[in-house]
């Protein structure tokens, strides 16, 4: 096991023994916490943003104020929100989950509204003319067509959340981020590298799984390459939350 690179004191970037010694306890526990802390907000954010987005699409007057609020929320640094929330929720998972849920909202609400706006008017008209009631039209026509844009937002939010959870480590609530603080306290790069790699892998894997789900549910998006609109990834560029 030759060291990959050396720090200033000759410490290797990775010590494999540390990984095997700590795999089942520290690393697995950190990973479990990370999964809970990053996916709970995605789920909550999705459940809230769907009705909120629908409401904004239905009553256009709501959208501008909602957008203003979400864009401010998105600008707030996660660490600031964590600290302020401590006053209300103490050092619990809720302190991390609430801000990340807000970030998820700030990405997903515009995603739902944009997705619904992307439904061509003639398609909506045709559905009405064929006798679709409002609810059936929403469920069978509008939401399926909006799905790619919504899913793109969901992917952005998920990946951002996974990376943002680690900031909570500053207060001891950071999942894999805990490995960063351990590394700093001991001036020891291995846990930091392991943490960074695992966070990136987790983000990548989640993104791929969501992409797979999106593909499976939207076969028409892959049909005929000629008239593909620009992918929703571009629409969702701002991304959710900042450290």
């Amino acid at each position: 096991m030759s060291p990959l690179a050396a720090g200033d004191d000759g410490e290797p970037l990775i010590r494999w023994e540390w990984i095997s010694n700590n795999l089942t306890d520290d690393i697995a526990e950190a990973l479990r916490e990370h999964l809970i802390l990053s996916f709970t907000p995605v789920l909550l954010g999705f459940l809230v943003s769907l009705p909120l987005g629908l409401a904004c699409a239905r009553w256009k007057r709501l959208y501008q104020p909602t957008l203003a609020i979400t864009s401010i929320l998105y600008a707030l640094p996660a660490i600031a929100l964590f600290v302020i929330l401590i006053a209300f929720t103490g050092l619990t998972y809720t302190t991390v989950v609430v801000p990340l849920t807000l970030y998820t909202l700030s990405v997903l609400v515009p995603g739902v509204v944009d997705g619904l706006a992307a439904v061509p008017d003639h398609v909506r008209q045709a559905a009405t003319a064929m006798g679709f009631g409002p609810l059936r039209r929403l469920l069978q026509v509008e939401l399926p067509i909006a799905l790619p844009v919504v899913m793109a937002g969901l992917r952005v939010a998920t990946v951002s959340n996974i990376s943002l959870v680690s900031v909570g480590a500053i207060m001891g609530l950071g999942g894999l981020g805990q490995l960063f603080t351990t590394g700093l306290q001991r001036d020891f790069p291995t846990p930091i590298v392991v943490g960074v790699v695992l966070v990136i892998l987790l983000a990548l894997l989640s993104d791929l799984i969501l992409l797979g789900i999106q593909r499976a549910f939207t076969p028409w998006e892959r049909a005929g390459g000629t008239r593909r609109r620009k992918t929703a990834d571009q629409a969702a560029l701002p991304g959710g939350g900042a450290a």
């Binding site: 990946v159 700093l184 960074v196 990136i200 993104d207 991304g239």
Partner: peptide
């Protein structure tokens, strides 16, 4: 596009700490 997605996945705190541990 991939660079944008990758940047979202990078844990900021981890990178900062790594940069500091590896230097001074």
């Amino acid at each position: 596009m991939a660079s944008a997605n990758a940047a979202r996945a990078l844990p900021t705190l981890g990178l900062l700490i790594l940069a500091v541990v590896l230097t001074s």
